[in-house]
């Protein structure tokens, strides 16, 4: 039995998360000896399939290219996965909004309890995953014949490129008269994507207002960083929700995370505490963020951030 990885893609490009999910699949394959297939579902996705075929460790790329999969809506994607699942022991996807949307549908229709956001593979049926906002790590074992799993991409190092998998078309076309796509408003940014950036600069309630977030631009420009925010800053209306780092937002693990004016609520730390180096800038020296920061700088962010920009 093989392992199936659902490819993550946006705007005609294979998303980086896919290479991390394939890495998790390879760890499972070490225990089970299985081959790894990647499924690319969408409309006009030939180039994406070629990119997926280049990922190391992939045996075969299966391509479902049809208008019904056009915006990767959960209903047709779930039905497609159900139609293909009998060939597989494991179906994996990134713990992205696409993976989270579609995979539970497959699990439910196959009578399988899905395992969400794994961070480690113990064996082919046993996995570690964070619970309670990452304040506990559960080891769970599945007796289900089909394992349906989402993967936290930051927990697995991406596989390299240089593979040469075969590419085959899947001619399964499902019906969808339940849901339809209307439009999409995606933030336009020249910055790296928050989930995969090497450096992240985040602002919290201490930024005071949305306008002040521009202060972070200079530092982010110099470091090639993505800009994030705490839930408090999002709740206060400073910035949009897609910038949120935390239990209920994005989980990041960059080489360098700079938290500016962020006190360090449990749910924020859940989203960033696996970063390699954490820097905290906050005027309150008692703020919990300093307990996880490698380097803490106590003081007024409105003086310190411009100074940091100058000295980088």
């Amino acid at each position: 039995m093989s392992i199936l990885v659902l490819a993550e893609h946006h705007d005609g490009h294979l998303a980086e998360g896919t290479a991390h999910v394939v890495a998790a699949a390879r760890q499972i394959a070490e225990h089970s000896g299985a081959d790894i297939d990647v499924l690319v579902a969408g409309e006009g996705v030939a180039a994406i399939a070629e990119a997926a075929a280049g990922l190391e460790g992939v045996a075969r790329v299966r391509v479902a290219d049809h208008a019904v999969y056009g915006h990767q809506l959960a209903e047709p994607l779930g039905d497609l996965l159900v139609a293909l699942a009998d060939d597989y022991s494991h179906v994996l996807a990134a713990g992205s909004t696409t993976g989270k949307n579609a995979l539970p549908r497959l699990a439910a229709l196959k009578g399988t309890q899905q395992i969400s956001e794994i961070i480690a593979v113990v064996s082919a049926d046993t996995f570690k995953r964070p619970v309670y906002a990452g304040n506990a790590i559960a080891t769970v074992q599945s007796a289900d014949a089909l394992k349906v799993i989402t993967v936290r991409p930051t927990a697995f190092d991406a596989v390299a490129e240089g593979g040469s998998a075969s590419v085959e078309a899947v001619d399964t076309v499902v019906d969808n008269d339940l849901s339809s796509f209307i439009d999409e408003k995606l933030a336009q940014s020249d910055r790296p994507e928050l989930g995969s950036a090497k450096v992240v600069v985040s602002g919290g309630r201490g930024m005071g207002n949305g306008e002040n977030f521009k202060l972070l631009d200079g530092v982010a420009d110099k470091l090639g960083a993505a800009i994030g925010a705490s839930r408090a800053a999002v709740d206060a209306g400073f910035v949009p929700n897609d910038m949120q780092v935390g239990q209920t937002g994005k989980i990041v693990a960059p080489d360098l995370y700079i938290a500016v004016g962020i006190s360090g609520a449990i749910q924020h730390m859940a989203g960033m505490k696996d970063s390699k180096i954490i820097v905290a800038i906050n005027k309150d020296e008692e703020a919990p963020i300093f307990q996880v920061a490698d380097y803490g700088l106590v003081g007024d962010l409105f003086e310190l951030v411009p100074e940091l920009e100058k000295k980088l």
């Binding site: 946006h10 915006h71 809506l73 992205s96 909004t97 696409t98 849901s179 339809s180 796509f181 209307i182 439009d183 999409e184 408003k185 995606l186 933030a187 994507e193 989930g195 949009p240 929700n241 897609d242 994005k250």
Partner: peptide, 9 residues
Amino acid sequence: EVDGGLQTV
């Protein structure tokens, strides 16, 4: 709320 923005369905 999707990764990177908003989607309307």
